[in-house]
Computed example of a mutant assay.
Amino acid sequence: MQDRSARRRPRIATAVLAAVAVLGSAVLSGCDSDGDGTAEGAAAGKRKPPAAGPVWDRSPKSLAAVGDSITRGFDACSVLTDCPEVSWATGTDNMVRSLAVRLLGEPGAAARSWNHARTGARIAELPEQMALAAKEKPELVTVMIGANDACRDTVRYMTPVADFRSSFETAMRQLRAGAPKAQVYVSSVPDLMRLWETGRDKELVKRIWSLGVCRSMLSDPDDMGAEAAARRASVQKRVVAYNEVLRDVCAKDTRCRHDGGAVFAYPFTGAQLSQWDWFHPGRDGQARLAEIAYRNVTAEQPPA
């Protein structure tokens, strides 16, 4: 004869399983809701608040500069000589009032800014400069480079756009490896065609340019023939392409801000250029660059 307790076991097990199923359903419903047990509550419970991105610091406390002769103040104080004290980025000159002075004050600019730019540098050198800048652990790094990549003896020697992009991407990786939270302000390459348009009708300027200043754009400034026009157009097109690369690569880094083409668009005149080469910015030109940089670095929103 079968034991009564044995006959009750299947019914007990079935009841337990049913209770577990009901309880599990209630638990799962509770996890998927916000407490009101409704479908709307469940949907709301699944939504997560968006992650806040990094906020641009409009008042960084230290600054490192990388780039070329413009950032070194070349030919701004005397012929064929660097003059870093008038650099738009890190200089201490009272007339220029560099970005560092405007952000940090004069004592701060002297103590907490570093200039790793080099006269004659092209984009291929930027990764090395960025690595040096990263060692300073700056809160802001300024970048101005590209003019020397377009200013070559002939257009055939201009840096290819793909190489320009690769070097800039590598430079950004170098910075991030050593200073992952540093902000980056990237200046556009100046408009070299405007330089030619500004100085081509001045005999003294043309004699200076004939010594070898930016031959790809400025050689034979009086030549208005088709070949010379095509050469200048090639340089201009390359500068525009470089600026597109700088903007694009910067846009992929959440702590990078491009100037929106402000330096390229600035209407430089002879008053802003070096009296020795009519190519590099003089003191007044350096001051204009500092103004542009300060306006963009301290703006609430990046340039359009």
Rank of each mutant, 00 (worst) to 15 (best):
G67T: 01
A19E: 03
V263R: 06
D153S: 01
T92C: 04
A21R: 02
A15N: 03
R47D: 14
G212Y: 00
A182C: 00
W209V: 06
R238H: 09
L246H: 00
S113W: 12
A15Q: 07
P107W: 14
W56Y: 05
Q129M: 14
E197Q: 13
D253A: 07
L28W: 07
A229S: 13
C83E: 15
A44D: 11
Y266T: 02
V16K: 02
D259R: 03
V161G: 15
S188M: 06
L195I: 09
F164C: 05
A26M: 09
A76W: 05
D68W: 01
R176N: 05
L211V: 03
D191H: 06
D57Q: 02
R247K: 15
D223Q: 05
A39N: 11
T92G: 07
G108I: 01
K206P: 11
A42N: 13
R58I: 15
A290Q: 10
V143Q: 00
R295Q: 10
E125A: 07
R176C: 04
Q2P: 12
E128I: 13
R200N: 01
Q286I: 06
E139I: 09
K202Q: 12
S113C: 08
M144R: 05
P281C: 13
R255N: 10
H280A: 09
G105F: 08
K252E: 15
R8T: 05
G105N: 05
V263M: 05
L99W: 00
G260A: 06
A233H: 14
A299M: 00
P10A: 14
D163E: 15
K137Q: 13
M217L: 05
A111P: 14
M1F: 14
W88S: 13
A226T: 12
M193Y: 04
R247E: 15
T269E: 09
Q286F: 07
R8Q: 04
A44Y: 08
K137V: 03
S216M: 01
M217G: 12
S69G: 09
Q174I: 00
V186H: 03
A42E: 13
E136D: 15
P303S: 03
S78T: 14
V297P: 02
F264R: 11
